[in-house]
């Protein structure tokens, strides 16, 4: 087992992009949506879900 030290020097930037893109990487809704998708309660595929996320993330980065 190997511990990886998390580098939080740019944590504020990540937080800002996260808020700006409304991803919520630490929020329960993110998992909720994933689980709903996995058990077929919401329509759509996993790839589309992630594509949408990365699109918003990239947009917030720019």
């Amino acid at each position: 087992m190997k511990f990886i030290e998390v580098d939080d020097s740019r944590g504020a930037d990540v937080k800002q992009i996260d808020n700006q893109s409304e991803t919520g990487i630490y929020a329960p809704e993110y998992r909720q949506k994933l689980v709903d998708l996995a058990r077929g309660a919401t329509k759509g595929g996993l790839d589309d879900f992630f594509a949408d996320l990365s699109e918003r993330w990239t947009e917030a980065q720019g």
Binding site: N19, Q20, G24, A27, E29, K33, V35, D36, T42
Partner: peptide, 18 residues
């Protein structure tokens, strides 16, 4: 979850989550 999100829940999330 499960598509029960209403407009007010969404507003609260926008204000206090993001």
């Amino acid at each position: 979850a499960t598509g029960t999100e209403t407009f007010v829940i969404q507003t609260v999330n926008l204000a206090f989550r993001f």
